[in-house]
Design a protein around this nucleic acid. Structure first.
Length: 298
DNA sequence: CAGATTTGACCGCG
DNA sequence: CGCGGTCAAATCTG
């Protein structure tokens, strides 16, 4: 794609995403996998959403020089909101739900009364940029295909300033390509349920374009390491041309290939991601039905 | 070997 | 004292 074309492309995309973000009051960038912005807890704080020093600091830390007073109270003041991410049970798609940011897992905890453990993530650039954004990911007990993602704090790292086109972290992209990433070729089964129309449409993608998807066995740990937490997971499912068509009952067919086989550049993948995402109504629910692949559920 | 994840231990709140 | 949240050493991965 030529530079000028790309720039127009990005500007247009930025515009659309801004509108969608405003419409949904999403505090952060939109992701095609986000199906619902459930709650937004914006405490009555000092006005600014967050600044270094107001975010959570370790209880145990003895060097909270910039956090005077009760750190726990401070933590409660950090903006918190929850999103629900729907992932088809059959997909077995593992790891932190894609939202365009790079996260680093720092803990996992079994929660009393919950069937599934809760994964704790913080911004991967916490050390380098002091970004205090964190999130918690927990699978819903009632609907196992739904993940409750609780965000705490906003990104103050460079990612926040480059949400779109949101070029993926090169390091993670490199890692992913070396990982056991697998591309599944789903010609059908990607459903977009729009709340407004109440109808279900099936996304048909170009048969020639493979879809990157993550495959990682991790002892049933749904919150395991699967990095990057960006377009390469769920968002990447949008990273190819689609055609909107009425839902059909076609059976899914899969033809796995390695991620290295991808001809589309990382950058283009991201662009497709946001573009396709923004093509839908802001209130659209997105579902994926991948079926099974080679004995492993996706 | 560097960086990421795992997991048991620890901490503070309620 | 139980629980949620975090730390950090051990382990894993590329």
């Amino acid at each position: 794609m030529e530079h000028n074309t790309r720039m127009r492309y990005l500007d247009q995309k930025q515009l659309i995403l801004n509108e969608l973000a405003e419409a949904k009051k999403l505090p952060e960038r939109l992701s095609g996998t986000r199906i619902k912005s459930e709650t937004v807890n914006e405490p009555q704080t000092t006005g600014s959403t967050e600044s270094p020093g107001t975010g959570y600091r370790s209880f145990r830390s003895d060097c909270d020089s910039d956090v005077s007073g009760n750190s726990y109270e401070k933590r409660k003041l950090v903006p918190t909101w929850t999103e629900q991410v729907h992932v088809c049970e059959k997909t077995g798609l593992q790891g932190p739900i894609a939202d365009g940011y790079s996260w680093r897992k720092y803990g996992q905890k079994d929660i009393r009364g919950s069937k599934h453990p809760r994964g704790y993530y913080r911004c991967a650039h916490k050390t380098a940029h002091g970004c205090l954004a964190m999130k918690q990911v927990q699978r819903s007990d009632e609907v196992t295909s739904i993940f409750n993602v609780t965000y705490r704090g906003k990104h103050t790292c460079f990612q926040a300033a480059h949400l779109v086109p949101n070029k993926p972290d090169q390091h993670y992209a490199k890692r992913l390509k070396k990982s056991q990433a697998t591309i599944i070729n789903f010609q059908s089964g990607c459903h977009v349920k729009t709340e407004n129309s109440g109808t279900t449409q099936t996304l048909l993608r170009s048969p020639s374009t493979p879809i990157p998807c993550i495959e990682k066995e991790s002892n049933n740990n749904i919150f395991s390491s699967m990095v990057p937490d960006n377009q390469y997971s769920m968002d990447s499912l949008f990273s190819c041309p689609y055609l909107l068509a009425p839902a059909t009952s076609e059976s899914s067919s899969f033809s796995p290939c390695r991620v290295q086989d991808l001809k589309t550049s990382d950058y283009d993948i991201c662009e497709h991601t946001s573009t396709v995402t923004s093509a839908f109504d802001s209130s659209a629910d997105v579902y994926f039905d991948f079926g099974y692949f080679d004995g492993l559920s996706f």
